[in-house]
């Protein structure tokens, strides 16, 4: 089963990390990611730029409305995601705990993936 691990965190806190703190977290996460990749469990991983760089297209009106900022105003923001190939929820939760140990605060939402298309484009 493919799972999406959606990373939520308070953006103002993450933006207040010093460069050293940020680098340290990224380094710890890279160790876990490398192990997952070797085990063939790691799909695409993305860290999203701050929500201030986001734009929302609201389709509930015609023509759709373009709004500055993220879709929802929430206490924690979607800051990144992983796609993981796991046997079951237990395994996905285990990986989330491992990643969580490297990355303080925030929450992970674990969502099974219904459809995955690898369009092949790379940044």
């Amino acid at each position: 089963m493919f799972y999406a691990l959606l990373c939520y965190h308070q953006e103002d806190v993450v933006c207040a990390w010093t460069k050293e703190e940020d680098d340290a977290v990224m380094q710890k996460l890279a160790v876990v990611q490398e192990r997952l990749a070797k085990a063939g469990k790691l799909g695409p991983v993305a860290r999203l730029l701050p929500t201030t760089a986001a734009t929302t297209l609201r389709k509930d009106q015609d023509p759709p409305l373009v709004l500055d900022g993220p879709f929802a105003e929430t206490k924690e923001q979607l800051l990144g995601f992983y796609l993981l190939d796991c046997a079951d929820l237990e395994e996905a939760l285990g990986i989330a705990r491992e990643l969580g140990a490297a990355n303080p605060g925030g929450s992970y939402e674990i969502r099974p993936v219904g459809l995955f298309v690898d369009g092949g484009a790379r940044p």
Binding site: C15, P50, T51, T52, L67
Partner: peptide, 25 residues
């Protein structure tokens, strides 16, 4: 520099549709 950027991001979160604040950031 980092503080100025952090505060500009904060302003942008509070006033998300201000083009000059986007420009400043």
């Amino acid at each position: 520099c980092e503080e100025a950027i952090r505060l500009a991001r904060l302003l942008l979160r509070l006033f998300p549709a201000e083009p000059e604040i986007m420009g400043l950031a």
